[in-house]
Design a protein around this nucleic acid. Structure first.
Length: 725
DNA sequence: GTTAACACTCAGCTGAGGCG
DNA sequence: CGCCTCAGCTGAGTGTTAAC
């Protein structure tokens, strides 16, 4: 019988052992005692304590079940026997008893004696003791019936069948050395040998149980994703009262702060180191090193970190036996991650430790203190006891619900291990995902584990993602089964179809853009021609004296449209000057009335047009921009550099022309400082521009820097423009 | 050598019941 | 009513074996 207080018993035993060790050497043992002690030690320690307990419980339960069944059957047999005797004594001799009941009179749950001799079997007289002592011929049948009872009658799942089966395998394996190991052998004559759990009858029942429920429903904990962690952290950042805001007497605020700091520490630790709940709960202060030796990286930088040593991860007993781990456990260096506070376990654990020491314990932590002890309602704890599973489970659900996570009740204690591992395996940014080898090491999985069962829940997620076809109707290609996480979507070459689609899209966009530009320029040209024409009319009729530069701006600003987008570029007014600082003047044909016009730039290319007259030179229209205009200087072979968008100078504006396309007669590159040559050349090269040419001219007027003027270049058509530009 | 099925172990999970 | 303990069920994780 198990002790009612196992912990006390354990402590008592340990205490006795300690005393015994300290007081006297071990007494001498005889052979029987030593053999018995060795067998007991093997029986008790070959499996984990909990496993042994569960196995033992199932064997006991099975034993009780067969006894009960045997007793019931004996009772029924007795009643039946008495009933038969009574019936025979009371029945008239002449009455014919057919010995059978009609089928519809039978209880459907009641077994019917079949005429089939195989079915009409009598219970083995040893059935009630089938599990007592060495296996008997009826033991396999007893195991099979017990399995049927638990799984078919009580509705237990396959795992229960496996557990019962394993319990009986282990029970008989450990019963008498090698005697009851191996396949079950029972010829009906000699004493049976082997393990009765391996009998065909038991195996058949196991197969039947495994198939009875079809595909089992999986109940995984929902993984805590990186986004979930951030969402919870944002919630806690708002809700967690700062230390300086918590009065010493305010236990409620203090408790709230403590719980949230505890949650941040536990969650970030489990999410980062991928620990299971029990592994986190059982961590003690001695497993941490908060003052490790300074470490200088290869790049010369030094980072803050602390060290945690996990020694007792799940199923590591076998690993330790094989020496698959480091001598002193599995060591993790935890570095600060201030840029990502939601998962900065370095800071969260330190913060929790400080809170624990300063506000709960009132002393520095000691080696055997649990890092995450269970918290009471008012921060009452016992540092020598770890937190409970239920406490962590409830806290996770509480915080997840409060933070507004989707399906918050689906988060269980395993959510951090799943979420952290999935993040490093699948969801971290490219370049930050870990290799399978690193994931295997970090999560403490066996090195020889197969690919598809290695970390099943990781690969399940990936499998689901890559083999999921629910988005097959999505217009965009979301196929993810051609590479890891569908990363090839970003690396696939451009297909003909993609190129055609891209071209069409560009064409549409470009057309709309050009259309807008041309319309804008067209308005400019229209306004420009009107302005020029009006200005010339003013000059012609007023016969005004030459305008001073400071007057010209205000004068001709009045000619500009009110549209704000066409504000005059006043800083450039008058910059087009001759060396002696005299302003250029507009010449209308041979007239010598200087007029200066400044046309603001607009939209594309900031075209500025300055129409000036210069007494010693031909009238000109210059397109100014940030580039440089080379103009003849006073010396024959020197050129003066002035701001201009391109090296174009047009001249000779017809007085009567009001149409845009006929405004510009010629475009001329001034290459000579000789007014006579310029004048004579201009006469030869002047030609009318079409509207298309004019627009084209304005369009390509953006050409910056200006090509070196070619001697006597005249541009009169689009083709010429193309050729000369 | 690979793969799938099987075998086994153990911690997570759940509900019942006791207790203050 | 909430907290805690306990027992039993469930599923994850790991190891082994046989078929291909």
């Amino acid at each position: 019988m198990p002790s009612s207080s196992p912990s006390k018993t354990k402590k008592t035993q340990a205490s006795h052992a300690t005393k015994h060790k300290a007081s006297s050497p071990a007494p001498a043992l005889d052979y029987d005692q030593a053999r018995q002690a060795a067998e007991n030690a093997a029986r008790h320690f070959i499996k984990a304590k909990k496993t042994n307990e569960k196995y033992s419980n199932y064997v006991k339960a099975g034993s009780a079940f067969v006894k009960s069944l045997s007793d019931d059957d004996a009772l029924k047999a007795k009643i039946w026997s008495q009933h038969s005797k009574t019936a025979q004594s009371q029945a008239p001799e002449h009455e014919i008893d057919d010995g059978e009941l009609k089928e519809d009179e039978l209880d459907p749950g009641e077994d019917v004696h079949s005429p089939d001799p195989q079915m009409d079997r009598v219970m083995d007289p040893e059935f009630g003791e089938a599990f007592d002592g060495p296996p008997k011929p009826c033991t396999p049948e007893a195991i099979a019936i017990f399995l049927w009872y638990k799984c078919f009658h009580e509705g237990r799942k396959v795992s229960t069948a496996n557990l019962i089966y394993s319990a009986f395998v282990n029970h008989y394996k450990m019963l008498d050395g090698d005697k009851f190991r191996g396949p079950w052998q029972d010829d009906g004559i000699s004493t049976p040998r082997g393990n009765p759990a391996h009998a065909a009858r038991v195996q058949d029942m196991l197969k039947a149980i495994k198939k009875k429920d079809g595909e089992p429903e999986r109940k995984h904990s929902r993984a805590m994703s990186y986004d979930d962690m951030r969402q919870v952290y944002e919630y806690i950042s708002k809700e967690c009262p700062a230390q300086e805001e918590v009065p010493s007497h305010d236990q409620q605020s203090k408790a709230k702060r403590g719980r949230l700091l505890y949650y941040l520490a536990v969650s970030s630790f489990a999410w980062t180191v991928w620990t299971r709940n029990c592994e986190t709960r059982l961590l003690q202060f001695k497993h941490f090193d908060f003052n490790p030796a300074a470490k200088i990286c290869s790049d010369g930088k030094q980072h803050s970190y602390w060290v945690v040593n996990l020694r007792n991860r799940k199923n590591w007993q076998a690993h330790l036996e094989k020496g698959e781990h480091q001598l002193y456990g599995h060591v993790y260096n935890i570095y600060s991650k201030p840029e990502d506070p939601a998962i900065d376990v370095y800071q969260h654990v330190l913060r929790w430790k400080d809170f624990l020491e300063d506000h709960i314990l009132g002393r520095p932590m000691e080696d055997n203190d649990y890092m995450f002890p269970g918290l009471g309602a008012n921060l009452t704890i016992n540092p020598g006891e770890p937190s409970t599973y239920a406490f962590n489970r409830d806290l996770i659900k509480e915080v997840a619900t409060a933070a507004g996570l989707h399906k918050a009740n689906k988060y269980m204690t395993h959510c951090f291990r799943r979420g952290g591992a999935q993040y490093r395996f699948m969801f971290a940014s490219i370049g930050r995902r870990w290799t399978m080898a690193r994931i295997r090491w970090w999560g403490g999985w066996a090195t020889g584990e197969r690919g598809d069962t290695l970390i099943r829940y990781l690969l399940d997620e990936l499998q689901t993602y890559e083999e999921d076809h629910r988005d097959a109707l999505c217009p965009s290609d979301e196929t993810a089964n051609r590479s890891h996480m569908g990363e090839d979507r970003a690396l696939r070459p451009l297909t003909t179809s993609d190129g055609q689609e891209f071209f069409n899209n560009c064409k549409t966009e470009l057309n709309e853009c050009l259309k807008a530009q041309i319309e804008g320029l067209s308005q400019h040209v229209s306004w420009l021609t009107n302005s020029c024409f009006t200005a010339m009319q003013v000059v012609r009729h007023q016969q005004a004296p030459p305008l001073q530069p400071q007057h010209s701006a205000s004068t001709y600003q009045a000619l500009l449209p009110s549209n704000s987008s066409l504000q005059p570029f006043t800083s450039h007014i008058g910059v087009y000057q001759q060396p002696n600082n005299a302003p250029f003047q507009l010449s209308t044909g041979r007239a010598s009335h200087p007029i200066k016009l400044c046309i603001s730039h607009h939209q594309a290319y900031h075209i500025k047009l300055c129409i000036s007259h210069y007494p010693s030179r031909p009238s000109a229209i210059a397109f100014l921009k940030r580039s440089q205009l080379r103009l003849p200087s006073s010396s024959t072979h020197q050129r003066q550099v002035l701001p201009s968008p391109f090296n174009l100078v047009a001249w000779s504006i017809p007085q009567s022309s009001s149409a845009v396309p006929h405004l510009i007669h010629a475009i001329w590159f001034p290459t000579s400082n000789d007014p006579k040559k310029r004048g004579s050349r201009s006469c030869k090269i002047g030609q009318l521009l079409s509207q298309a040419d004019a627009r084209f001219l304005f369009g390509i007027g953006i050409r910056r820097g200006g090509r070196k003027p070619t001697k006597g270049c005249c541009i009169t058509s689009e083709r010429s423009l193309r050729r000369n530009f």
